[in-house]
Simulated scan of single mutants.
Amino acid sequence: MEVHDGAELCFPQLLNTSCRKPLTSWSVVVFLRILLSSLSVLTVALNVLVVISISHFRQLHKPTNLLLLSLSVSDFIVGLVFMPGEILRKTSCWFLGDLLCSLYIYFATIALCSSVGNIVLISVDRYVIICDPLQYPTRVTVGRVKLCIFMCWFCSSLYSSYLVKDDSLQKDTYFSCYGECALMVGHTLAFVDLILAFIAPVTVIMVLYLMVFVVAVSQARAITAVTLQHSVTVTSRKSELKAARTLGVLIAVFLMCFCPYYCVSFAGGDILNTSYGILVPCLFCFNSCLNPLIYALFYPWFRRAVKIIVTLQILQAGSREANVL
């Protein structure tokens, strides 16, 4: 790699082995850093509230909420690790070394993969409770949900370890330059990643929610036809349908935030290699920020729990038993 101006290099003393600094104006870099740093802080703060709410209040220790808790933990890591790392990678040179680069890629990949896995688990949970409600209490138990969550994170960790290992092998084979932190994988692994991390999960999600939608519509029509003497049952089914709609919004937001990255990446767009390219992968973090806001809009228990937390009533004795439902 030949250069003409040492001031353009991340490490001028290394000459031809150094990467170039991002060619972006100072004002654009400042704007991106302020915007995305604020988004990162907001993502972390909102997901901390979700984690505290579900972990603290006993009434919320239910299978569906445990899945939401797992999703919030992955969203928290996205806001804490993925977003700051992307800001640093795209708006400046990487001065933290190869070890921290590998650790960043490892934890960011775990968070993103577990987010996808948690969304799939939530889809399965909604499918069972809507399409087979009588069997839901026996088929979806707290123990089974915890096992599924563990397997989700375990598989994400294994997959991330393999990506980091392959990344190291690629860098040893095809050296680029010093001053960058990029995930380098072969074409075969990139195709496998596209299948496993996007196409397969999205297909499962879409099929499950199509079936849930059909059943939910038929149940909604049945609810309007029942008599008043079944009001308790009607209220219960309305609650389940509302939960299905809420998680449907959750998945719609997920698809809108994840699709642009994979579409651009699959098309081979060069925008991902520019400073502006940070906006595409950081839609991941925007999704992680929107999830708690969806809870706040659709779940009254979350609003009540947040009120208790911010007013410090959570520090009072017996607050774990508070009625938030």
Rank of each mutant, 00 (worst) to 15 (best):
T173V: 09
L39R: 06
Y136P: 00
S37N: 04
N16F: 06
M206R: 07
Y127I: 05
L39V: 09
Y209G: 10
G143V: 12
R89Y: 12
P137K: 03
S55F: 12
M151R: 11
T233L: 07
D75V: 04
V140H: 02
I87T: 11
T43F: 05
T224I: 02
V212D: 01
F191K: 11
T138Y: 07
S55I: 07
V142K: 14
Q229D: 13
V3S: 12
A197Q: 10
N65Y: 13
S161C: 08
I34W: 11
Q229A: 09
Y178S: 03
Y174P: 01
N118W: 02
V164M: 09
R139C: 00
L121C: 10
L147D: 06
M211P: 00
V28P: 00
V264C: 14
P137T: 02
F198M: 08
L247T: 12
Y299R: 06
E240W: 00
P133N: 03
R126L: 02
T24R: 00
G143M: 11
L228F: 03
V140P: 03
A317R: 15
I77S: 04
L71I: 00
V3W: 12
I309P: 04
Q13M: 11
I54M: 12
L88R: 14
R139S: 08
S288W: 10
K90H: 15
T64E: 05
L99V: 15
G97N: 13
I309L: 12
P201E: 02
R320L: 05
P300N: 08
F191E: 14
I223S: 06
I251D: 03
L96T: 06
E321M: 07
M184I: 05
L147H: 07
R303I: 12
G248C: 07
V202E: 07
R139A: 07
T138S: 14
S27P: 00
W26H: 10
E8I: 01
D193E: 08
P12V: 02
P292S: 12
E321L: 14
A7I: 00
C177H: 04
K21I: 02
P281W: 13
V73H: 06
S168W: 07
P281C: 14
D167N: 15
Y106F: 15
N47T: 08
H187S: 14
K238N: 03
K62V: 15
R139E: 11
W94R: 09
D270V: 01
R237Y: 01
Y299S: 11
L241K: 00
D270C: 02
G186E: 05
L71R: 05
V120N: 04
Q219N: 04
L163E: 00
R33A: 02
L35T: 15
Y174A: 11
Y261E: 05
V207E: 01
L14A: 11
C152W: 01
M151Y: 12
P201F: 07
A317V: 09
F198A: 14
